[in-house]
Design a protein around this nucleic acid. Structure first.
Lengths: 192, 192, 192, 192
DNA sequence: GATGAATGAGTTTTCATTCAT
DNA sequence: TATGAATGAAAACTCATTCAT
């Protein structure tokens, strides 16, 4: 990737995450990057496609980080879940643009993003399902019924941690009590 | 409230919840309501203040509904928590505009909304803290340490249910397995 | 005149003189007067006609004040001119709306004002011509050629004192040196 | 300066001088120039800044013209004053936008113009003070007291010639008698 | 007389996109 | 590749005026 494209992409990422998709203008991105607006369109065709690339790069990073956790096959599944949750929160705290894609208006108007997000959602669900399965097999967890549903529930719960109220300003205060919450959850799914 | 104002407010609520704050134009609201754009500004001074009133009316409704749950003092606290969570999800499913206020750009730009939202957050935290307290006193719950922290955690979890991914389209599918999730949580905080 | 009309007129005068015709809205006048906007239209049909009445009341006051000066037939004509100039400046300092009517855009668009202003201009020219005539007859002034032209020139000069730069803020400082200027002028037209 | 910018600026100047700042819309300027409204904003950010540039260009021209007069050091100071006054009137007759800046509302609302105008005022005062000083030294003029005050008074007088009543339509008629007026003034300040 | 809700045409401004260089 | 001038559609907002009560 050319230095100009690189610069534009990283500037776009920062600006989008600060003001959101709609409140960010192409002009502002170009100015912040000290590049011409035309260059933005040369490298990324449209605002939407630029945003898509920004989100993609965030998700790529998120996947990489989470994969490191999942690969640790030997650890107690409860411990893996715990590590996964903490890592996810950490990365999410800086994956603000991905979060924005969860807004309703993105669903109404931009099919060009659904594929990226759905793929990520499915990937995550798959990974967690696998861990839960391992935990059940190793008799560390007690999950009657469909395990996929538990995975979905965990994801829903984790998405709660993405809310700005939490991420903005309160992150530091709450992270310290995070173990408590995880304790409740793991106790809730543990074999007695 | 005059019929015109009423009509404008309800139309605004619907339109905002469909397209989000930024993708909704004042023109569109006025046209949908078959009223003049000037009337919008006569009754609500600005787009932001109009949105504020929309959110306020949603929160007012949410509070009323939740208050009914909280007032049932005799029930088992786990049962109240369960009823609370379900009711909250139901109402949230139609309080789409309030959800939008949780977006980062609203935090950056609009102080005019923070007061409303913070007040709601505090109110909810207070209510849940009280229920948890009651549960501990009645020896139904096991919550070592600061109870307020558990209340906050529960709220964070509930906010997870507000994510559009869940609310849009998947609500019906997931609500049926919701009891499972609540089961995990209540098991997690129950006295053995 | 009813108290409501009176109140609206005086408020309109103040507001127009502060912000000018275009920057003043009917809404602002009504609000400042703590009256309904409809009342403005009940008493004065349109913004233009309201402004006309404001200007008229200023000119009426100006005429009354200047007439007092002109009627002193016995004094030295140079003294009358001096007194006239000072009084005119004093009154003009508070006749800001009349001044605005001298702007080009008022000439282009509002015939409804020309009559009022032309009448005032002619009245003033007439008065000054008469004084100059008296001065020439009493051999106090030396004005070769057409006396009306001198009257017009004096008026042009006096209009110079109407410029905001002078009226705004510098009025107090310059008024103290005003006698100097009048000295030059009267020396310029005096018989040696 | 690009041809488009040039065209927009000159069109803006003409339109503003015809209808005044408030009665001129950006739309009208763009249409008259047969350019897109967006181009107006590309080159001049806002209506106020566009107007500022229009005024600036007028004042630049005024300064250039007057400087030519001032530089004639050998002539009789009374003759220079006379030439200065006539030239100023001529240029002012086409510097209609600068005149508008003297309106009260411009002082209340737009600090963005004060610097330009104050600078011009001070420049003019300085030039005239210098001429008067030369005249006193050469014993052509009789100016007891502070000479700066005379300079200010002359400027006030000259501003009187800026009034639209004079400039609009009556310019031609009055200019022919202008010498008379200047005669009064120069006689008033001449050494006998 | 007095009110204030309702209107709609008009205003300034923003901004994604195109294109000649 | 990279630029920045130019565009025009659309946005938020203003405001004189009307009118039923």
């Amino acid at each position: 990737m050319s230095p100009t494209k690189q610069k534009l992409l990283s500037t776009a990422s920062k600006t989008f995450s600060k003001y959101g998709f709609y409140k960010t203008s192409m002009d502002e991105i170009a100015k912040s990057a000290r590049k011409a607006k035309g260059s933005l369109y040369y490298h990324f065709n449209s605002k939407e496609l630029l945003f898509r690339e920004v989100v993609l790069s965030e998700l790529t990073f998120l996947k990489e980080e989470l994969t490191l956790i999942f690969e640790n096959h030997d650890a107690d599944s409860r411990e893996i879940i715990r590590a996964y949750m903490i890592k996810r929160m950490e990365v999410m705290n800086i994956s603000i643009n991905y979060q924005e894609t969860l807004r309703p208006e993105f669903y109404e108007f931009y099919e060009f993003l659904n594929d990226v997000i759905l793929e990520m959602d499915q990937w995550e669900k798959q990974q967690i399902t696998e861990i839960l399965n391992r935990g059940v097999v190793k008799e560390e967890l007690d999950l009657p019924g469909n395990i996929e549903v538990y995975a979905e529930m965990l994801l829903i719960f984790l998405k709660g941690l993405e809310t700005p109220l939490f991420l903005k300003g309160q992150y530091e205060r709450l992270i310290s009590n995070f173990d408590n919450l995880i304790g409740i959850l793991t106790k809730g799914i543990s074999k007695v």
